[in-house]
Design a protein around this nucleic acid. Sequence first.
RNA 1: GCGGGGGUGGCGGAAUGGCAGACGCGCCAGACUUAGGAUCUGGUGUCAUAGACGUAGGGGUUCAAGUCCCCUCCUCCGCACCA
Length: 854
Amino acid sequence: MPFLLLYNSLKHMQKFYGGMNLQMPYDFASIESKWQERWNNAHCFESHTDTSKEKFFCLEMFPYPSGALHMGHIRNYSIGDVLARFLRKNGKNVLYTIGFDSFGMPAENAAIKYKTKPHDWTLSNIAYMTEQLKRMGYSYDWRREAITCLPEYYRWNQWIFLQMYKRGIVYQKEAPVNWCSTCGTVLANEQVVDGGCWRCGTPVTKKNLKQWFIKITDYAQELLDDIEKDLNPGWPRRVRIMQTNWIGRSEGARLSFKIPELDYELEAFTTRFDTVYGITFIALAPEHELVRKMQEKMTPEDAQKLAEFVKKVSSQTSIERSDAGAEKLGYKTPFYGIHPVTGKKIPIWIANYILIDYGTGAIMGVPAHDQRDFDFCRKYGIPIIPVINPADGTKLDGAAMPHAFEEDGIACNSGQFDGLPTAEAITKMIDWGEREGICKREVNFKLRDWLISRQRYWGTPIPFVYCDKCGVVPVPEDQLPVRLPEDVEVKEVGHSPLLDLPEFLNTTCPHCGGPARREADTMDTFFCSSWYFDRYCSPGDTKAPFEKSDVDYWMPVDQYIGGIEHACLHLIYARFFAKFLTDIGLTKYREPFTRLLTQGMVIKDGAKMSKSLGNTVDPTEMVKKYGADTIRLFILFAAPPNNDLEWSDRNVEGTHRFLNRVWRYVEDNAEKLKEYGTKIIAMNELKDSKLRDFKRKIHTTIRDVTHDIYDEKQFNTAIARLMELVNAVYSLNDDTPEAWELKREAVDVLLNCLSPFCPHITEELWEMLGHQDMLSLAAWPVADGESLVQDSVTVVVQINGKVRGKFERPAGLGREELQAGILAEKFIQDKISGKDIVKVIVVPDKLVNIVVKG
RNA sequence: GCGGGGGUGGCGGAAUGGCAGACGCGCCAGACUUAGGAUCUGGUGUCAUAGACGUAGGGGUUCAAGUCCCCUCCUCCGCACCA
């Protein structure tokens, strides 16, 4: 009775407040927290290494703890959780957890702005975001969480870095590096996007600094080869192509020009050795080492002019300098190089369009067959000599050509090689050049070594010290971690706070025991994210970054989910790490991520949700209003994972309505459903065609949902199938015991199949129906073959390809039988009377197409 | 410029070469209501009377094309002086 009163008053409230559309027939808030607590107490989602079981490692790109989750995170993790829950229910030993990529610049900026400390700011963000994640009901094994800014984690960054040093793939070099003045630090090549800083967009300039590099280029070929060998088809084509282009392999030859006046041999790389006879100039990057040597031999006035030119070019930002439309600037030096084939004197220029860090930083200029060289020569009046004519017989004229001829053709003006088609010319001329000692076959990559030094505080200290006596000395492994001081005030001083901390900087040399200084630069945070998944396998290990047996069992990741923006950053670094760790015997997989899913952006009002555009939707608010289940379901239903997803408040309500519909049905019919929950009626026991159809619907739903989730990762259609099942349940107006047994079967299947998407409401209803087990751990239903078989089928009849009728037929009729029966139909007879049947196409159980004439 | 996706109702989106538009949103009508922005039922590509036309546009292959082939347009994304 008290319950009834409450219920009625709720109904009244609904009358008055229902208009606000927030009155919930089901109390998602308490249901969701109830089940989150139960899962936690039952340790349901904790996984253990167990080689007797088939594993599945489901991984999501872990977040940067910026303060709060955004919808992009919610989307990413909702996709992952569905897969994790689905596979768990399908008997896999699932590793599914999360962590925080918690080093990096924003913490320093926030520390200045809010007068706090990066450490405190970061950890409090992590605490808040952890609450948000828990509130969403994701089935993480929280014991495995990895937080990269804690010494327990970053000490292994240092350790791995030292292993790389030992193997000779870590080195220090003074080089012109990408500099972001806003961030006050250098950037790796991959972090320069459209000539600007990937983080803040500031145009990047070059700066000469001594920095730490990792020789990722040693792995260029393998990184390239394995894209097609191991990542096809598990990775999206788009990402494979992006990485292939980024690595940028090209085959060609290296040749050299003697410069007698400077006693120097200048090397250049070309992919078009067949055009050597067309060389009319040589061009160097302004940063080339030869520039200094030239200046020494020039008159002071000329040297000064050259210096000014170099200064002008190098002060250009990379956008100004490398934009395809940018003006080509050159400076003619008084020096000549000797053409290696013809022996002619070739003038040497310095040009802004030559890049110091590709090839040798010098080129052979062939204006007739390279548009860039062509533009340059037209501007400075350098001669143009064609050495290839088009295959159609046209003869090119260097003085009259409107643009460079870059296509293949027939060699000319090339001595003994005249008449050869381009492909053959390239091979034969390089063969000849190698025999004559003029050139050498060479492969070049666009990929550069990974610059990992950052002039910042909030990162992993690079474990090296500088000793006046011993030089650069690695910190011994047993002295790790080199701890980052946490109690530090960050100020806007333009350099790392570590430089102002004598207690950090001053140390003793591990080698000689004398006074020494620590390296004050920290590591690029992409170092942290290159192996965190290994740590997930073996969390809390204090003796090693991870236990080999754990990693051998769990790795590689079976499904990785994240944004496309990491295609050429994180996803290349992590692949490189995998290869390195395997090479030193720590692991045995060579590719870390077997399958990759790149989810689309979350869009609102036609633009990516972002704080700067002010079009964000706060997940926490949405969860408060509709519950986690609704938000999860909406985000998975609104679009397939790889598409962009348009946020729609209306559709959120629609999704919420669907869950209410499910709730209402089960609650309103709970007694009946429980009463009849005892047996499954087999298909062959059912006579009524309506009931047989209903039974079939249950099982086709299982079949289709399973396929959509696992094979297609097409969650929107899986959810649509479940909505159809709900509609079917509502529509079955049959009060017989048989019907109730079936309805009970349908509801059980519905709740089970819906549970990966909406784990809370389904657990609650599952329990309401008297189940003793936890739905999250209950086995996924199996479609019963017999129940899938159709009794009858609708056969579409076409005449000349146009639909003219539909007929019910028993399933499984043979071609002839089906054709004869259809042709005998009076309706069809009437349609084709007086015409000749040319041909009849029969697709059993589906279609008959009658081709007629006349 | 090069490379890769896309283009289907009012909207998000479905369709192993075989009934285009599943499912949802929205909209329309009705029911229950004092009331409805709740719920339920029905309808909803376009034009029309039968029927025709419809998947960016044009051509082709096929008994049959949103789906395969060729051309064009539009759009999004990535790379962009890489020798």
